Simulated assay, not measured.
Amino acid sequence: MIWRRVLESINGFCECTGEDLDLSIRLRSKGYRIGLIDADVYSEVPNTYLAFKKQFSRWLFNSIWNMKHNLRLLLMSNDVSMWEKVDGVLWMLQFPSMSFAALSILATVILSVIGVLIPPMLYYSLRY
């Protein structure tokens, strides 16, 4: 539930598919509180790999879209605590970071197969 005047104060819904994250960030950055209902929630899950891939791509795009449009708003807000800012940034980074982790694993496997070894940065720092 959201009051109409509150929704109007943040310029309504975005023209995006990730309106839940967008709305949450804009509401919190204006000082509004967001509550959660402590009850079971049922949702439809993808039943094929292709459907999962499309859903994950949508979540990834929404996270990046929100970072582009709302990161500055979140970080510059005086109504949001430092911990909420950190939490908001981590929330927006969760799907992009999963993609980078998968790419990192793939790159490591490919480099290992062709015989290239890149030591970790900690090794370099301890060496000198």
Rank of each mutant, 00 (worst) to 15 (best):
C14H: 13
C14G: 15
C14R: 15
C14W: 11
E15F: 09
E15M: 13
E15Y: 13
C16S: 11
C16T: 10
T17I: 07
G18Y: 03
G18L: 03
G18M: 10
G18D: 04
G18F: 07
E19R: 08
E19V: 12
E19A: 07
E19G: 06
E19I: 03
D20W: 11
D20T: 15
D20S: 14
L21I: 15
L21Y: 06
L21M: 14
L21V: 14
L21F: 03
D22S: 11
D22H: 12
D22F: 05
D22E: 07
L23R: 09
L23Y: 04
L23W: 01
L23H: 06
L23I: 13
L23F: 11
L23D: 08
S24W: 09
S24Y: 10
I25V: 15
I25E: 04
I25Y: 05
I25K: 01
R26S: 04
R26D: 03
R26E: 02
R26Q: 06
R26L: 08
R26H: 02
R26W: 03
L27W: 10
L27V: 11
L27S: 01
R28M: 10
R28N: 02
R28Y: 02
R28C: 08
S29K: 05
S29W: 05
S29C: 10
S29G: 05
S29H: 08
S29L: 05
K30E: 04
K30G: 01
K30L: 02
K30I: 00
K30S: 05
G31R: 04
G31D: 06
G31F: 04
G31A: 03
Y32G: 02
R33Q: 09
R33H: 09
R33F: 13
R33Y: 11
I34V: 11
I34L: 10
I34S: 04
I34C: 05
G35C: 05
G35D: 10
G35P: 01
G35I: 05
G35K: 07
L36E: 14
L36I: 10
I37L: 15
I37D: 01
I37W: 05
I37C: 06
D38E: 07
D38N: 12
D38I: 10
D38Y: 10
D38V: 02
D38M: 08
D38H: 05
A39Y: 03
D40K: 13
D40P: 11
D40I: 14
D40W: 08
V41K: 13
V41Y: 14
Y42M: 04
Y42P: 00
Y42K: 11
Y42C: 02
S43K: 12
S43T: 11
S43F: 14
E44I: 14
E44H: 13
E44P: 00
E44G: 00
V45F: 14
V45S: 06
V45C: 05
V45T: 14
V45K: 15
V45R: 12
P46Y: 05
P46I: 06
P46A: 05
N47S: 15
N47F: 10
N47D: 09
